[in-house]
Amino acid sequence: MPQPRKTQISLIDTPYYHCVSRCVRRSFLCGEDKFTGQSYEHRRGWVEERLLFLGTVFAIDICAYAVMSNHTHVVVCVDKDMADSWSMKEVIRRWHQLHQGTLLSQKFQKGDALSTSEMISLKETALIYRQRLYDISWLMRNLNEYIAREANKEDGCTGRFWEGRFKSQALLDESAVLACMAYVDLNPIRAKMDITPETSKHTSIQTRIHSLIKGEQPRKLIRFVGNHRKNKPKGIAYNLIDYCELVDCTGRCIRNDKAGYIEQHHSPILTRLGLETEQWLTLTTEFEQHFSTAVGSEHMLQQFKQHTNHQRIRGMAKARILLQHT
């Protein structure tokens, strides 16, 4: 039986989450249908474009993504403080990029005068909008419903396009976040859709590598901000070059037709995480197999279990083996 979303999301424990949506129809979300020969490859661009757009509207940063043939992976970081800092005007402006809002919110955005009672009502509405703009469920709803409408329109049919709900995993520590990002970025290589990260279309790693070649970082993805330090800007506390190199090495290891290995002293990220190569490779190839609702060290899992009122959390044993140094 599906678990309530409130038992899967706990911002007290972590702002990072891995979300997976799967297509329910045999006709595929993207790729080519082997039975009919029809190509749906262009839909991968729909998903990528919509997801990156939503990242500019919501107070939710996009960390990693991969658009596959019948499912999508997204790693996100919720920034509740950012949403709380927005003015009511900013909240309404952002919400209207996605929905029509109410007559009062439309009137307010036009600059028309509102009575005292109308303003009180609008403030209550804006509070709801603010909460939705840092809600992962609303982000995924705005992604999946949009894609479903476009795909149904193209297919000339109606009905359910996605499975009932998206799956989410809380990423409770740095090891879980970095391993999950690499797991997502390497999805096309594990599926033998591509042979290198830089050629993996519609993935965050390709976007990051193409920007890195220009000496930049993608504006619509969360930034890598270097090593831990005081007053560091918001972002992932590792070097982007180190991450891209680690993903490349990992990709060579998991491909059967191309030998490769990761030398511990050549991987600053693994050194800082305290992970051995074998642990890292297991995490980045079998991430979803070993963990369900949350991923992290045993201590972090115990805390998450308490805060979300779970009786048990699957993955405790694997956490002791794979994330014992975190």
Results as ranks from 00 to 15, higher is better:
Arg149Trp: 14
Glu150Val: 01
Glu150Asn: 03
Lys153Ile: 06
Glu154Gln: 14
Gly156Leu: 02
Gly156Asp: 00
Thr158Gly: 07
Arg160Lys: 12
Arg160Cys: 09
Phe161Leu: 05
Trp162Cys: 02
Trp162Glu: 01
Trp162Tyr: 00
Trp162Met: 01
Gly164Pro: 00
Arg165Val: 06
Phe166Lys: 00
Ser168Tyr: 01
Ser168Ala: 02
Ala170Glu: 01
Ala170Asn: 01
Leu172Asp: 01
Ser175Gln: 12
Val177Arg: 10
Leu178Cys: 04
Leu178Ala: 00
Cys180Trp: 07
Cys180Gln: 10
Met181Phe: 03
Tyr183Cys: 09
Asp185Ile: 09
Asp185Val: 07
Asp185Glu: 06
Asn187Leu: 12
Ile189Tyr: 05
Arg190Val: 09
Lys192Asn: 12
Asp194Val: 10
Pro197Trp: 04
Thr199Trp: 03
Ser200Cys: 06
Lys201Trp: 14
His202Gln: 05
His202Phe: 01
His202Ser: 03
Gln206Gly: 10
Thr207Leu: 15
Thr207Cys: 14
Thr207Pro: 09
Arg208Phe: 08
Arg208Met: 10
Arg208Leu: 06
Ile209Thr: 08
Ser211Pro: 10
Leu212Ile: 08
Lys214Ala: 15
Glu216Ser: 14
Gln217Tyr: 12
Gln217Trp: 13
Gln217Pro: 13
Pro218Cys: 12
Pro218Met: 11
Arg219Trp: 09
His228Thr: 05
His228Trp: 03
His228Gln: 07
Arg229Tyr: 08
Asn231Ser: 14
Lys232Ala: 15
Pro233Arg: 11
Lys234Tyr: 15
Lys234Trp: 15
Gly235Ile: 07
Gly235Cys: 07
Ala237Pro: 03
Asn239Arg: 12
Leu240Ala: 10
Leu240Phe: 06
Ile241His: 06
Ile241Pro: 05
Tyr243Thr: 00
Tyr243Ile: 04
Tyr243Phe: 01
Glu245Asn: 05
Val247Cys: 06
Val247Gln: 07
Val247Phe: 07
Cys249Leu: 10
Gly251Val: 12
Cys253Met: 01
Cys253Arg: 00
Arg255Glu: 09
Asp257Phe: 02
Asp257Lys: 03
